[in-house]
Amino acid sequence: MSQAMIRVQAVTKSYRRGGETLVVLDKLNLQMEEGRFYALMGPSGSGKTTLLNLIGGLDQPDAGELYVSGENLSDLSKGELANWRAANVGFVFQGFNLIPVLSAFENVELPLKLTPLSRKERREHAEHALKLVGLEDRMHHRPKQLSGGQEQRVAIARAVASDPKVILADEPTGDLDRKSAEQVLELLVRLNREFKKTILMVTHDPHAAAHAQSIVHLDKGQLGSIVDNQPMALGPK
């Protein structure tokens, strides 16, 4: 059995809204293996995105401990957490979240600027990542000159450019048409199978979740179930 890439131990997270405390994650325990593709499902407000943000080091739990890639995130300062994110995690968001004033190439190159790579090496890595998502001919286009599907593929290229171990995707197909969504899901499956990336994808869509190897259900901030899944075969290219 593979070792745990993500270990969530008794994690609690709550928010204050309008004077009330809303417990989003309640002493959650969860373990995810290295190199697997997980779909994280559950009703709205079940804590999916909150959990994703905690695992990605974008937010910190009120209680409990989070180990990702062997690192206890609670031990890291804000600056250390930023460095850790740069080296270990790639994010894919529902709204693509590309920097609008930068070209596709410049967006993909951004995380590489935090590495010691030379300018030439950065260029090679960014071009390689764009080639991987099939957008090498769009590298000088700005986000607004791309379709939604293309934007999300650029976001995936940016997420993998610095070769992180974990890719966290928050509803990556939520804003896409069926065809584009399928292309994005195929890309994530490829990244998992060929490059052994550990992927955690938040989704409401059972069809999208069917591409994952395991489906984690959250309900009211607690673990509902983890179901192993026979992922769908990749469609024709």
């Binding site: 804000k78 600056g79 740069a86 590309l98 920097i99 951004l110």
Partner: peptide
């Protein structure tokens, strides 16, 4: 604002 969030999520520091 959103771009700052993106940059921070990528690993750019507060500084």
């Amino acid at each position: 604002t959103t771009d700052i969030g993106i940059l921070k999520s990528i690993g750019f520091s507060d500084r």
